[in-house]
């Protein structure tokens, strides 16, 4: 088992690295090969006030006077050593820009993840154990959550809690209360798929013959839930939590804009409007790293959680049936 597990872990980790590198290349190609000579346009933009020497230095640094493949290799090589380059707009190191913005987004995203998990568990438990009619209503919540755009949720929350109830002010978007509401905004759409997976697997597990047999042995519903149903239902949910990390990173762009928070989302926004390719490239690649790493952890944990998982057979893609 341990030898098998080590081999399994190494294979998975290897695949994860390959995926991250490919994601980098893919992003690079989208940014630089698609139409428009963006880089030089940005550099020559008088707004940024770069001197001719600065421009020459940047062109040399990124190899902009050379073929795309050379640019890619240069950039990829630097990425591998942790060097993210310089912003075309501000000439600041990208690592500094990202580093400044990261704590705010991390706070937002982890709070949102916690809230999403709480929402999802509450919905799933209600769907399972509330009396008939209420359970049906609770069951339709995820579908409703999935239908409301996250910017609408944000605007409604601001309208009521900031403008009417004065729970927080939009002028201090990083205050704990404001952060909480921003996190709720981000959490609501994200909690829906998680709740759906939880509901589906609880339904599935409680219909299994083993649940019937356990009931025939006189187990109460509460013990049945705690002893038998939680663990097998948690398995697909762990995979789903890992998947929604991506949604959190994407959704923070909108949420930060609405709440006026500084963070990775605002960095992306600025980079897009300013056609600041190195920043965009770095943020997207780092998101891919985070996503792949979280999924790798979930993947490596699954054989430890579920004795049935056969190490040779699982694949990242197959675990979560859409």
């Amino acid at each position: 088992m341990t030898g098998d597990y080590r081999r399994f872990a190494l294979t998975r980790a290897g695949q994860a690295i390959v995926v991250v590198l490919l994601a980098y290349v893919f992003t690079f190609l989208i940014i630089s090969v698609l139409p428009g000579d963006a880089i030089t346009n940005t550099l020559r933009d008088p707004q940024h006030g770069l001197s001719e020497e600065d421009i020459q230095r940047i062109v040399a640094f990124y190899g902009l006077d050379q073929p795309v493949i050379v640019q890619l290799l240069l950039s990829l090589g630097r990425f591998l050593t942790g060097e993210l380059g310089f912003s075309l707009q501000s000439n600041l190191p990208v690592s500094q820009i990202v580093g400044d913005a990261l704590p705010s987004t991390l706070t937002l995203a982890t709070t949102a993840l916690l809230i999403a998990i709480i929402f999802a568990v509450a919905i799933a438990y209600g769907a399972q154990y509330l009396p008939g009619k209420w359970a049906a209503i609770v069951r339709s919540i995820p579908s409703f959550f999935l239908s409301v755009p996250n910017f609408v949720i944000g605007l409604i929350l601001i309208e009521f809690f900031a403008f009417r109830l004065h729970s927080f002010t939009t002028t201090d978007p990083h205050s704990p209360v404001a952060t909480l509401f921003a996190a709720i905004t981000l959490a609501i759409p994200v909690s829906a798929p998680l709740a759906e997976v939880l509901i589906a697997s609880l339904d599935h597990e409680s219909r299994q013959e083993y649940a019937l047999v356990a009931r025939s042995r006189g187990l109460s519903e509460a013990r049945l839930f705690a002893k038998h149903l939680v663990k097998p239902s948690a398995l697909p949910s762990v995979a789903m939590v890992a998947l929604i990390v991506g949604e959190l990173l994407g959704g923070s762009v909108i949420t930060e804009t609405i709440f006026g928070r500084d963070g990775i989302g605002t960095v992306v926004q600025k980079a897009v409007t300013g056609e600041d390719q190195p920043v965009l490239q770095a943020v997207v690649s780092l998101s891919a790293v985070v996503f792949v790493a979280v999924n790798l952890v979930a993947d490596l944990a699954s054989p430890l959680l579920d004795p049935r998982v056969k190490l040779r057979e699982t694949k990242l893609k197959e675990k979560v049936g859409a």
């Binding site: 490919l22 698609l34 991506g246 949604e247 990173l249 965009l280 997207v284 990242l316």
Partner: peptide
Amino acid sequence: GRFVDVLLAIPGFLLAVVIVSSLG
């Protein structure tokens, strides 16, 4: 499969933002 993994690895909304910023 690796190609699909790559598309999955980049958060969907970010990917859309990057593509739309490249296309205009």
